[in-house]
Amino acid sequence: MNSLRIARAALRVRSAAVRTTQQCRGYAEAVPDKIKLSLSLPHQPHPPQPIYKSQDVVQVNMTAHSGVMGVLANHVPAIEQLAPGVVEVIEESGGSKQFFLSGGFAVIQPKSVMSINAVEGFPVEDFSPENVKAQIDEATKVANGSGSEQDIAEAKIELEVLESLQAALK
């Protein structure tokens, strides 16, 4: 009689346990913790290869016009206009790669899909600090000179890019 009561109590406990597990999230529907990143440039949409093509990465840090931001998986959908600056990609292996992009857009879509499009972009180590320095001198001269308004405005754009590039190379 007594053992029967214990068994029935155990049954009740188990059915309660079954109810709670049904409300939990199972492994199969676990949310992804990686971003599928595509980073492509107009002049290399096909082979040799876009820099990234739906590759799983951990984090993307970028210089947007609204500020420097880091993007992880499950970010809210957003469109960001990129300022000339460095995009840092932290890959699955834990290593990170830095690219300097001239300007473009980053689109963050639902379910951790992200695409970045830029006009020009190269790994930071491909740049020559001497060439940057020489161009800063030249652009500064034009920006402070007495050229047309168009020339001065373009020299100021160049200076903005070059100063960002110089900071990235340090």
């Binding site: 300097f100 001239s102 006009v119 972009g121 020559s128 161009q135 160049e158 890019v161």
Partner: peptide, 18 residues
């Protein structure tokens, strides 16, 4: 603006890639 920024980025590369 994008064209000017891209041009200056190209000019800043190391000579072989530039």
């Amino acid at each position: 603006y994008l064209a000017v920024a891209a041009r200056v980025v190209r000019r800043s590369l190391k000579d072989d890639k530039r």
